[in-house]
Design a protein around this nucleic acid. Structure first.
Lengths: 169, 169
DNA sequence: CTTTAACTTCACACATTTCTGAAAGAAGCG
DNA sequence: CGCTTCTTTCAGAAATGTGTGAAGTTAAAG
């Protein structure tokens, strides 16, 4: 009835296996959402880690993959702002950390993403013209993305408030 | 200065090429967003078509792919409610149509998607317990998805209103 | 300045995905 | 009831993606 503790030395293997199940399940959903497999597994592992941060070696061992694979995954994750890289001073070890405050934003990929779509739709509207059904249809899509951009901004603000209240008090 | 008309017989090839450019560009962004290539191309072609609907043969020719590929793509698109299938009475031809009203919802994949994530997060929280940093971190993620579910519902309602006013009103 | 530990890059092998051609399966039409 | 037209299924070829090992790069430590 109490198989959820981390600091229990007696069933370390079971615990590790249970963590692994959660990590792989979480990762699978990230994959389904469009993320590639290795970044997904690394991210899930970091989120499930006690400190929210792990070294390359720890990730490599826990996920049973080569350091090269970790390197590639982390490069991607850092690029999209899902993890940050830390250098512990006086050591070559690098430490990767989930960006607690940013990953909600990053998940919705608001900024660049929506802009690109809007550009494409604008071109489509211009190409077909508002006097064609296609043009009007594409224009409506453009409006949807403009609407989304506005709404997602305030949505994330509300989340920040909700979160601060719920945690910080 | 006026190279956007569809009903102009003199430059049909240029027009077709221009449409193709838009379709491929749009499709590429859908792919980037996680959709597989062929469904993305089919969807983009439908959205860019005058009636918002095309037959299998038309898609096959326009996209330069086999009927088999169209079949597979449409099966997927229908499953996720992005297109509907119509049978013109008295013909074996099937006609695929963009679901004008539904595809915004479908794009955000609200329902099933969020539920799955929530389930996974709940299991994570239970596994680690709220007395661990991991557990609290995962719990916050769970709360984010609950928040999102609620907010996206009202967001789509606002969009429906905005859209009705802008078009119908 | 050399050694050594850690991370990164790159070419390649393996796995997966994606599209095609061929054949089978429906559904109108004579 | 068979013929014809369109769609679907399926096995396999081609393209793509993914992770590894080995060599290369960087930076701390001696």
């Amino acid at each position: 009835m109490d198989e959820r503790r981390t600091d229990n030395g007696t069933d370390g293997d079971d615990e590790a296996a249970a963590v692994s199940r959660f990590v792989e399940r979480f990762a699978a959903q990230l994959v389904q959402a469009g993320m590639t497999r290795m970044p997904a597994r690394v991210f899930a592992a970091l989120l499930s880690s006690e400190q929210g941060a792990l070294t390359s070696a720890e990730l490599s061992e826990q996920l049973k993959v080569s350091p090269a694979a970790v390197s590639g995954a982390v490069r991607y994750l850092a690029q999209v702002n899902l993890v940050g890289r830390e250098r512990e001073p006086g050591s070559r070890r690098e430490r990767y950390r989930v960006q607690g405050d940013q990953w909600y934003d990053a998940l919705l990929e608001r900024d660049a993403f929506l802009r690109n779509w809007q550009t494409t739709m604008r071109e489509g509207v211009q190409q077909f013209g508002l006097d064609t059904p296609q043009g009007r249809r594409i224009n409506e899509t453009l409006e949807f993305f403009l609407f989304l951009e506005k709404e997602l901004g305030s949505l994330m603000q509300r989340w920040a408030a909700h979160r601060a209240e719920h945690l910080g008090g």
